[in-house]
Design a protein around this nucleic acid. Structure first.
Lengths: 204, 204
DNA sequence: AGCAACCTCCCCAATTAGGGTGATGATAAA
DNA sequence: TTTATCATCACCCTAATTGGGGAGGTTGCT
């Protein structure tokens, strides 16, 4: 029961050393090795994908693959420790992340982990992802009153002024006043702007 | 240079085995071991926190700690493989996650990883987090047309109908028509509802 | 007394929502 | 080929909601 693998990397030297590493362990069969993205005829068990390829980037390649196959595990390979690309790749549907500097010791364990557990993340990537998930504590710069926070939450749940007034047992006009103050503090001029800013900046 | 550690767990037996494990390695000093959350006088280098304690839960304890200390690494311990608690803990500010079943082999490596890299995640937890970040592919149930998607995005960025019309070079009334269709498909009756639904369900 | 948060009310203008109708072109089904 | 269906675009009218401005009050804290 060998594991079939496709490799996408524009760097021929790295591709060779990947192939050698996988060969050495004896548990893998490389069924494809490409210097750019090519839609495969048959899906392998695992895909290794360089994030930074000329032409179609690794991230775009992941999107293309995910458009017709949601399951095949894709491990991204990168020299970067750069967060935007990593988060983009994860959101596009990559299932794991391996920094190139740690390939020699971690490639085979990572692939096994991926098959056993469904994902693999190097700790530094895990840190990045955890940070991006945590509510940014810095953003307490708007100093809303508790009433304003409350009303902003109601607004973000799609309630009209009327519904908020009824729900909080205050008058319609009072709701309007609070919302005016919220707009001033958020520097916005409409409910949709306020809602999108509140959700995206994790104020709620 | 020993590493100081606090342990919070209501299970005395587990607490003891944690202490023994840490003792054995000789690199750690347990400066506190509690069966419930107590605000520590001095911060240790690392905190181990059971997620499921009576009284103040581990998640609430993380929130309390994070309210005055953003940096101390907190590793959550749990028997559960249950996603909601795990994601909650991460959002509350936990920096790592360890399943209790793998404590014996992974506790010490995880702590070292945490100190070296700033985070540690067991692969199954990593999988969960990755899945929660990826756009839910199931939710393609609304079958928006491409124009509708486009307009929904503009709306979510806080644009008024006028701005959308100008930006897309179509008439105001056409924008309205599309938005009516979007509301029908999303089953909402206002822009704020549409925006919050779109953002929360990752439609954009 | 001064201040801030919270509440109330007013007016007016702008925007948004709900109900239609109708034309076009592209695509699929009969 | 004709008939549907759908997306796109456009317009009408009316009603409801929202946004911007102002003028007041109460309460509690300093």
């Amino acid at each position: 029961m060998s594991i079939t693998i496709h490799i996408y990397d524009d760097n021929a030297a790295l591709r060779q050393s990947l192939e050698q590493l996988l060969d050495l362990s004896g548990e893998f069969i490389i069924t494809g090795s490409f210097d750019q993205f090519i839609a495969p005829a048959a899906m392998p068990d695992i895909i290794l994908m360089d994030i930074d390829m000329p032409g179609i980037s690794g991230i775009d390649a992941v999107k293309k693959i995910r458009s017709f196959n949601k399951k095949v595990p894709i491990i991204m390979l990168t020299v970067f420790d750069d967060n935007t690309h990593i988060l983009e790749a994860i959101c596009a549907g990559a299932s794991g992340y391996l920094l190139k500097k740690s390939i020699s010791e971690k490639l085979v364990p990572s692939i096994k982990e991926m098959i056993a557990e469904g994902a693999t993340l190097s700790p530094s990537v895990a840190k990045m992802i955890i940070q991006s998930m945590q509510k940014t504590p810095v953003k307490e710069q708007y100093h809303f009153s508790s009433r304003e926070k409350e009303i902003l939450e109601w607004l973000c749940r799609g309630n009209s002024y009327k519904m908020i007034a009824a729900g909080l047992n205050i008058s319609f006009e009072t709701v309007r006043t609070h919302i005016k103050h919220i707009y001033e503090k958020l520097q916005v001029r409409s409910a949709t702007e306020a809602v999108s800013k509140a959700i995206n900046e994790k104020l709620i």
